[in-house]
Amino acid sequence: MPRNPRNQIYPANEDLPAPGRGGLPARLWRIRTELILLSALALLTLTLHGATQEGRWWPYVLLTSAVSVPVATRTGRNWVVAHFWCVVSRHRLQRVCLETTMHTRAGRIPLVLWITPTTTGEKALIMTRAGICAEEFEAYSEEIAAACWARSVNVYRHRRRAQFVIVEIVRRDEVPGAASPGLDRLYGRRAWVSVRPDLEEPPDLPRKVALAQAG
């Protein structure tokens, strides 16, 4: 038996279209990072080619400095690794939606609007499609964790706009300084509520803890 009825929302005998369909803007949005990197690489290649044709070598010096400085520092390496995992997790999240029933009857999957590093992994801001909700992501939390090669997954929904979901991917113990300001600062912790009531902290919990310690 399935762990949750949401794990199988479509009848087994229903003939659905192949998932992953969508308009061109949605498909381009899913690979936006790769498109930006390819565009930057193409622009860099054209610039270097033009410079070598004119006998100028300073672009190579600038390029070497721009690459070697981040690689030579721990902060730079951590930044590169953290954002690499963001790209990996975004694609793995999309793959879970394709391989499970987290897509519409027309085959459209939720949009990963933004994904950012955290001290324990990544957080993804997702806009669901009609017929999909945060509880469905919670039902597939184990599949998401396995697909992202992570330890666990926490799911939160927006208090006032239920179409927005945060999927928190926990892949390691907390690493200080590994995160960017990210989702917490932009949207605020109080705007989100855990889908699992046992994980939700009351908004006034820090104040209560401070009063208890003071007493």
Rank of each mutant, 00 (worst) to 15 (best):
Y10W: 14
P2M: 02
D204G: 04
L113D: 10
R6A: 14
I9N: 10
S68R: 11
R160W: 12
L125E: 03
A145I: 03
N13A: 09
N78C: 01
P202G: 05
R90C: 00
P11M: 01
W29C: 01
G182P: 09
V175S: 04
E135M: 11
G177D: 02
G188R: 07
W85M: 05
P203L: 11
P25S: 00
E142G: 10
A134L: 09
I126L: 11
E138Q: 13
L183D: 05
T64L: 15
V170A: 04
P117N: 02
P70L: 01
E201C: 10
N7Q: 15
R185W: 08
Q213H: 12
R3N: 10
S39A: 15
P70E: 03
M127Q: 15
T128M: 06
Y60T: 08
A82K: 02
E143C: 05
T116H: 11
C148P: 02
A145P: 09
V80I: 14
T64N: 09
Q94T: 01
A146R: 14
E138D: 13
R3W: 04
I166R: 10
R185V: 13
V153H: 03
Q94M: 09
S141E: 06
R105T: 09
A179F: 08
G22C: 02
A139S: 14
R6V: 04
T52G: 04
R90K: 07
T104W: 07
R90E: 00
L62D: 01
T45P: 00
E34H: 11
R27P: 04
S68D: 07
R157G: 11
A106I: 01
L44H: 12
G131D: 06
G188Y: 13
W85F: 11
K208I: 13
R129A: 13
W79Y: 14
G182D: 03
R157A: 08
T101H: 13
T45V: 12
E14R: 10
R3Q: 09
I115E: 01
E201M: 13
G22F: 07
I169M: 04
G182W: 14
Q94E: 08
G182V: 01
L41W: 15
A12Q: 10
L111G: 06
I115G: 02
D198E: 13
T75F: 15
E201Y: 11
S68I: 15
E136K: 13
R27L: 12
Y10R: 07
Y60H: 15
L93Y: 00
A26W: 05
I169S: 02
D173F: 13
R32A: 11
L63Q: 06
E138R: 12
E99D: 08
G76V: 00
K123M: 14
R185Y: 08
K208G: 08
A214H: 13
V80K: 00
L98D: 01
F137D: 05
A210C: 05
V193S: 10
W79K: 11
P2E: 00
Y156Q: 09
C133T: 14
L199I: 00
A40Y: 07
K123H: 12
Y10L: 04
I36L: 15
P2F: 11
P19T: 03
S141Q: 12
V69H: 07
A150G: 02
T118D: 03
R77E: 00
W58T: 05
E168S: 08
L44P: 08
R27F: 12
A18S: 07
R21C: 02
G188V: 10
R30G: 03
L63D: 00
A139K: 03
A162F: 12
A214K: 15
P176L: 06
R157E: 10
E201I: 13
